[in-house]
């Protein structure tokens, strides 16, 4: 329950901080950090325009996408306190629930019969497919290190004692951050600010969405960032008492948003055909963590 409230709170400012960081880095003042939230509110008040090609799939897709992110949020714990949903192997549920959202956002894009939206859809499907093994190898290694198989138990028993485990923790944070970037279609995979349909990934998929539906999709994006931020926080939280953990959580989320903003400010987007290679590299980093976990647990012969 705690994690749910904290993630919701973090989601309100995460994207705002990213945008603010980017603005300041590029020499502008930039909007306030709650501007994304205000944008969504404005969208919720608007009517909608639908493509004449589209069917009910297009109308229901944003709702299902948002619901899947919402369900995934319920699974994420906060330190030692459980998420609302918690069982052995809940991270599989986490990944597959997000899968349903992805499925619908892809077919929603294809429902418009556009020449661009299918392109974005196919890229999204491809990139998230490549990101899957990194996530699973990483969770497998954490399971190996701790001997537990649910998010909460893994994070509650994950003690970063030695220097190797700190290195592993940093690597794992890197992998999670990159997965978050891929899931949210951010740099270096995708540039949300691009203006050319041919080079978009996520943005092009939602070209035809408007009003409430677009608001839901944007909100889901904010939530996703906060969810992955919470997971990264959980990697390091261990058994800190709530008095320290909760402020630390917000500091960490803010810091992550700042990092994302800096990455977006100073990095160019990869070429489309290099994206897949980049994402596969994540899997190999995850494998590195796995071998580190073997070393730490003394099973490396």
């Amino acid at each position: 329950m705690l994690s749910l409230i904290l993630i919701l709170l973090a989601a309100t400012f995460f994207t705002g901080i990213i945008i603010r960081t980017k603005s300041i880095a590029s020499g502008r003042k930039g909007p306030g950090i709650f501007q994304p939230l205000k944008d969504v509110m404005r969208l919720f008040r608007k009517g909608a325009v639908y493509s004449e090609t589209s069917s009910f799939v297009f109308r229901i897709a944003p709702t299902i996408y948002f619901s899947s992110v919402f369900m995934a949020m319920l699974v994420v714990p906060f330190g030692a306190s459980k998420g609302i949903i918690s069982f052995n192997g809940d991270f599989i549920f986490f990944a597959y629930v997000l899968g349903l959202g992805k499925f619908f956002s892809i077919i929603g894009a294809m429902d418009t019969g556009s020449s661009f939206e299918g392109m974005g859809a196919s890229r999204e499907a491809l990139y998230s497919m490549f990101a899957e093994p990194a996530f699973f190898i990483l969770m497998g290694s954490l399971a190996l290190m701790t001997g537990h198989t649910s998010f909460q138990e893994i994070f509650a028993t994950l003690h970063l004692g030695s220097s190797i485990t700190y290195a592993l923790g940093v690597l794992a944070a890197f992998v999670f951050l990159m997965i978050a970037m891929i899931e949210n279609s951010r740099m270096p995979i995708d540039d949300p600010k691009t203006h050319l349909e041919l080079t978009m990934v996520h943005e092009v998929m939602i070209l035809d969405n408007s009003g409430f539906d677009l608001g839901l999709i944007l909100t889901a994006g904010y939530l996703k960032f906060a969810i992955y931020g919470a997971i990264i926080f959980d990697l390091f939280s261990g058994s800190i008492s709530y008095g320290y953990a909760i402020p630390l959580f917000f500091v960490m989320q803010g810091f992550l948003a700042f990092v994302v903003g800096m990455i977006e400010s100073f990095m160019a987007r990869s070429r489309m055909n290099h994206n897949a290679q980049f994402i596969v590299v994540l899997s190999s980093v995850a494998l590195l963590i796995f071998f580190g976990a073997l070393l730490v647990s003394g099973k490396f012969i």
Binding site: G47, A48, V49, Y50, S51, S54
Partner: peptide, 8 residues
Amino acid sequence: SQVVGATW
């Protein structure tokens, strides 16, 4: 208002 229009 819910309008139906051409695809972008």
